[in-house]
């Protein structure tokens, strides 16, 4: 029998999440947040979509973050993520949706981070009414062979797999809608943090 794990120090237990609420619009968005790569750069792509609720209505108070590798599949270590010049690439973007639930980024298409994986962007969704943010990944529909071999995509119910794939809708442009609930509900991901155990006290 393995030794039981020591009880975690109370001081080192996870701080719980709370909703971003409705009033982040004057705080979290920042100039350049949606522009991870300058649109005039030859390798710039557009990633855009709408965030929908379970009634099929667009959500006007969500904020989306993307985080991705560079074209070689490496995380950027360039400093200056918030105050980026027009030539760099930091991999991180943030865009609040508009009144119609639309968000849009310009970024680059990342490289695969290791052999056997398809390229993707990590997408994080915050909104009023979402008590704990949601992670998903945006893969690309023009990477069919890589997507077919990707371990995460392969582990997902085939009927829902398409919700993780951004669709080419124009040259260098991909559409990635996010549905929080219901018909076509996006596959959201648990990186092992959802069921973290701890004792309970009233």
């Amino acid at each position: 029998m393995p030794e039981p794990l020591p009880m975690p120090d109370e001081a080192l237990l996870q701080t719980p999440a709370q909703t971003v609420g409705p009033f982040f619009g004057y705080a979290l968005p920042y100039s350049g947040g949606p522009t991870v790569r300058a649109p005039w750069q030859p390798d710039a792509i557009r990633l855009h979509g709408t965030v929908f609720d379970g009634g099929g209505d667009p959500i006007p108070d969500a904020i989306v973050e993307i985080w991705g590798a560079d074209a070689a599949g490496r995380p950027s270590t360039e400093r200056g993520v918030l105050d980026r010049d027009q030539h760099g690439f930091s991999g991180f973007g943030r865009a609040a949706v508009d009144r119609d639930g639309l968000y849009a980024f310009t970024t680059i298409k990342p490289g695969a981070t290791r052999a056997g994986l398809a390229p993707y962007l990590l997408v994080t969704v915050f909104a009023r009414g979402v008590l704990h943010h949601l992670f998903t990944r945006a893969y690309f529909d023009d990477e069919a062979a890589a997507n077919g071999a990707d371990p995460l995509l392969s582990s997902v119910d085939p009927a829902r797999r398409h919700t993780l794939v951004a669709v080419s809708d124009a040259p260098a442009s991909y559409r990635f809608d996010i549905r929080l609930q219901g018909e076509g509900e996006t596959v959201f991901l648990d990186f092992g943090l959802e069921g973290r155990h701890e004792g309970m006290q009233r």
Binding site: D57, R137, L152, S155, Q181, E185, L189, D190
Partner: peptide, 12 residues
Amino acid sequence: LRHPTHELVRAD
């Protein structure tokens, strides 16, 4: 109308 109804998918 803003919570997923499917289990989250475990990802490494």
